[in-house]
């Protein structure tokens, strides 16, 4: 690019914006839909219900161990489609750039988005760019929306959890939250914790190859698995019991959480899903999950129960019981 920094003119609709799109975005995200070069992408409808989702990404720092805002923006929206049982068809990307943003950083992020989109096989089919005055946003904000198709016979809904169902998770929890928090607070560990950001649609596909009767699927992002499980317990009007000993948490995440005063149950994950499935299908689904790299660490963490609807309880490591509440306010480190 001719300029080393983003200028307001890069978002003005004039020739500089044209250059930015032609020289950076189009070559990176190139595909037949983008090449249509219209105000909208036209995509054939292969039949089925349309899933549609949107998410905005404002993570700080924008680059962190294991990923960046770019991978998050692609994976996060793919995953929101995937956990609804949808096959992702395409993504939109809306970028809000701060005046003065380092062009090399933008190129890096765009390159990461290109790779993430290619690896997932989900094209970026339309986009938009705006530039705001210095101080009006923090470096770069990205919004992505996505559409996908839900094949017939699939009914995944937060309301569908039934007493007796098994609660499964696709792998270790807390990695993304710790990766971002440790970078933000300038803490370094001898074994660095890296973000788990990854697309989950192939994992979901292999789960459906076992059974279509998956009751609930969610990706436990902000608020962590505690918040996700509480949402499900509330929507389905059931109780959920989890076992502390069964929770997959790496020793590095446990150590970092102790040091930073964080609770892994509430930390964001960006490449994990929780699935609630009938007990009879649980082992088969787990086997299918473990057959994919994204689900290699899949395991059973609890069960759905009839009593105390709306409440998530945990059997603790020492054999006690406690409630797992929704997060109220922000997590703060200890002061005494």
């Amino acid at each position: 690019m001719k300029h080393s920094q983003i200028l307001l003119a890069h978002g003005s609709g004039g020739s500089m914006m044209h250059d930015l799109i032609q020289e950076l975005f189009l070559p990176a995200f190139d595909n037949p839909f983008l090449r249509q070069a219209n105000d909208q992408a036209l995509i054939d409808n292969p039949g089925g219900r349309i899933a549609f989702t949107t998410d905005s990404y404002v993570v700080q720092p924008v680059i962190f161990p294991g990923g960046s805002i770019g991978e998050l923006a692609v994976h996060g929206t793919i995953n929101d489609l995937a956990v609804g049982g949808a096959r992702p068809l395409g993504l939109s990307v809306g970028m809000i750039l701060e005046e003065g943003l380092d062009m090399a950083l933008l190129e890096d992020i765009v390159g990461r988005m290109k790779n993430a989109s290619e690896e997932a096989g989900v094209p970026i089919v339309t986009g938009d760019t705006k530039v705001v005055e210095r101080g009006s946003c923090d470096k770069i904000f990205i919004n992505t929306s996505g559409i996908g198709i839900v094949p017939g016979g699939i009914d995944i809904d937060g309301k569908n959890a039934r007493p007796g169902d098994a609660v499964l998770i696709s792998g270790s929890i807390g990695d993304h939250g710790v990766a971002v928090m440790s970078e933000r607070r300038g803490v370094q560990f001898s074994t660095p914790v890296v973000s788990d950001t990854q697309p989950l649609h192939q994992l979901v596909k292999s789960m459906f190859s076992v059974t279509h009767s998956i009751h609930v699927m969610r990706d436990p992002t902000r608020g962590g698995i505690a918040t996700t499980l509480n949402e499900i317990a509330g929507q389905s009007r059931v109780g959920i019991e989890i076992d502390e000993e069964a929770l997959p948490i790496s020793p590095e995440v446990t150590g970092a959480c102790d040091l930073l005063g964080l609770d892994p149950l509430y930390l964001a994950n960006e490449g994990k899903l929780i699935a609630i499935v009938p007990e009879a299908q649980a082992d088969g689904v787990l086997e299918a999950m473990r057959g994919r790299p994204e689900g290699a660490g899949a395991c059973r963490i609890g069960r759905v129960v009839e009593d105390r609807p709306g409440i998530v309880r945990m059997r603790t490591g020492i054999g006690g019981t406690r409630i797992v509440n929704v997060l109220s306010g922000e997590m703060l480190p200890r002061i005494c």
Partner: peptide, 24 residues
């Protein structure tokens, strides 16, 4: 004590009390 569920594994005759230990 609450997080680990210690109160729930104590026999009934053991009462766990909290004193003035929270600075806020």
């Amino acid at each position: 004590i609450f997080r680990s569920g210690i109160r729930t594994v104590m026999p009934e005759h053991v009462r766990m009390l909290s004193g003035p230990g929270c600075p806020v």
